[in-house]
């Protein structure tokens, strides 16, 4: 079989395993959808005036953040945790013992993340539109930005996650991933409005891709009048794509350079 066909086969196997892992499905796949529902219900009262004046509902307000969290969870969190586990439990060694081209393994991972994150985003948009009446973008230009930010975010998260998996063993990878990610989500404008974050923290958050994913998503779903609340006072679409592109390329290089098939201390 060709490498691409084997990559497809790996993708199907990965999807089977992922969908059968209830914790993964809940904490990475459904979590942003649950949070969007929760925030929309809890904060609907506070958004009554804004909704009457500008059409901004709680659901619409939180949607970009939840989309960004979803990208991060299905790519970075899923990858870093699953690859660390597979390195420790011998899965990688077993695969390395076969004539499977290594690229097929990575294609399987990319396929898993692509399918699960596209499904997640579709569900998020459906819930936002149907349950909370969030207006969808109407211009092709906005949808293009959406697609590019999403694709770069997911790809970058995948390769960075695979690279990050080498930071810890399967025993410690949970806290090592979830702790920093939670902090990053709070300072990147996912759960709380980015303009409420102190400026020095904003500057720090801007070093990481999540802030840019969230900003890109806001530029797609928020009215242009809200661009003034951003750090630069504009959506910075070009810079967003550049920064995310740089992270994706850097992540790929890092992933290729640091990837190990075996546990530490076994070669």
């Amino acid at each position: 079989m060709s490498t691409v066909a084997l990559g497809l086969d790996r993708t199907l196997l990965e999807l089977k395993m992922y969908s059968r892992e209830k914790e993964a499905v809940f904490f990475s796949f459904l979590f942003p959808i649950l949070l969007l529902t929760l925030f929309s219900v809890i904060f609907s009262g506070q958004f009554e005036d804004a909704a009457a004046a500008t059409g901004m509902t709680a659901g619409g307000y939180f949607l970009p953040g939840m989309l960004s969290a979803g990208v991060l969870l299905t790519s970075f969190q899923t990858m870093s945790m699953s690859v660390a586990t597979e390195r420790d439990d011998g899965t990688l060694k077993r695969l390395r013992a076969t004539p499977m081209p290594p690229v097929a393994y990575f294609l399987g991972k990319v396929g898993l993340v692509a399918v699960s994150s596209v499904l997640q985003v579709a569900l998020l948009l459906l819930v936002a539109r149907l349950a909370f009446g969030v207006a969808m973008p109407t211009t092709a230009q906005r949808w293009t930005v959406f697609a590019v930010v999403f694709a770069l975010g997911v790809f970058g998260g995948t390769v960075l996650g695979i690279g990050y998996s080498s930071m810890a063993s399967s025993r410690s990878i949970g806290p090592v991933v979830i702790g920093p990610l939670l902090l990053l989500q709070f300072i990147s404008g996912v759960y709380i409005a980015f303009d409420d974050v102190p400026q020095w923290l904003q500057q720090f958050a801007a070093l990481f891709p999540l802030k840019w994913i969230a900003q890109g998503m806001r530029s797609v779903f928020y009215p242009d009048s809200l661009a003034a609340a951003e750090m630069a006072g504009t959506w910075e679409t070009g810079r967003t794509i550049l920064v995310l592109g740089a992270w994706a390329v850097g992540g790929l290089v890092l992933c290729v350079l640091t990837f190990r098939w075996f546990k530490r201390g076994t070669t």
Partner: peptide, 23 residues
Amino acid sequence: LQSSGGLDLVTPREALASTARVY
């Protein structure tokens, strides 16, 4: 190998079919 973990969620048939395809 001395132990092959990481296959808990698939069946022997699925694991073998996927492995067989690379040979």
